[in-house]
Computed example of a mutant assay.
Amino acid sequence: MPATRSELPLLDTAVARCCSTEEGVPLTREDADVVARLLKAVADPVRLQILSIVRCSEGGEVCACDLPTPLGLAQPTVSHHLRILVEAGLLTRERRGSWAWFALVPERLALARQALTS
């Protein structure tokens, strides 16, 4: 079962180090691996669309059932992309009855932003 928001490591020590504001400190291999996994998850147009839809949604969450139509994709394909985003820690998943609801993890988005700007 995927991790819930409270179970996700919000800022790994290695990632915090790599995204510090210290000048002239290169990424270690471990830091680079962590950041690369995160960036790899968002390096897909569909996943960027999903993040945008969730970010712009009322209440900051979206039911999986509401995504196939705006994305123009079949439910299994949408589920695949959602799984990747959850595994990367960018989204959380909450079961409500037979539906799965997804919400952003702002700290992980901030981490991706920091990795690109620091």
Rank of each mutant, 00 (worst) to 15 (best):
P2I: 06
P2A: 08
A3S: 14
R5F: 02
R5M: 05
S6E: 09
S6H: 12
P9Q: 13
L10P: 02
L10G: 12
D12P: 13
D12T: 11
D12M: 01
T13Y: 08
A14R: 13
A16C: 09
R17C: 04
C19A: 09
S20D: 11
S20Q: 06
S20A: 14
T21H: 08
G24Q: 09
V25Y: 02
V25S: 11
P26R: 06
P26A: 11
T28V: 11
T28W: 01
T28H: 03
T28A: 04
D31E: 15
V34I: 04
V34W: 09
V35D: 00
V35E: 01
R37N: 13
R37G: 13
R37F: 00
R37K: 15
L38C: 06
L38A: 12
L39P: 03
K40A: 15
A41N: 02
A41W: 01
V42N: 07
V42Q: 09
V42A: 01
D44V: 09
D44F: 00
V46N: 03
V46W: 00
V46P: 01
R47C: 04
R47T: 04
R47F: 05
L48K: 14
L48C: 14
Q49P: 00
Q49S: 14
L51A: 09
S52V: 00
S52C: 12
S52W: 00
R55W: 00
R55K: 06
C56D: 15
G59A: 05
G59P: 08
G59V: 11
G59L: 06
G60I: 02
G60D: 05
E61C: 06
V62W: 08
V62R: 10
C65M: 08
D66M: 03
L67P: 05
L67T: 02
P70A: 00
L71W: 10
G72P: 08
G72E: 10
G72N: 05
L73A: 10
L73W: 01
A74W: 10
P76E: 03
P76Q: 00
V78H: 03
V78R: 01
L82C: 10
R83L: 13
R83I: 00
R83G: 01
I84N: 01
I84Y: 07
I84L: 12
I84C: 04
L85F: 03
L85M: 05
V86A: 13
G89I: 05
G89N: 11
G89H: 10
L91K: 01
R93G: 04
E94S: 11
R96Y: 10
G97K: 06
G97I: 04
G97P: 10
G97M: 02
S98T: 11
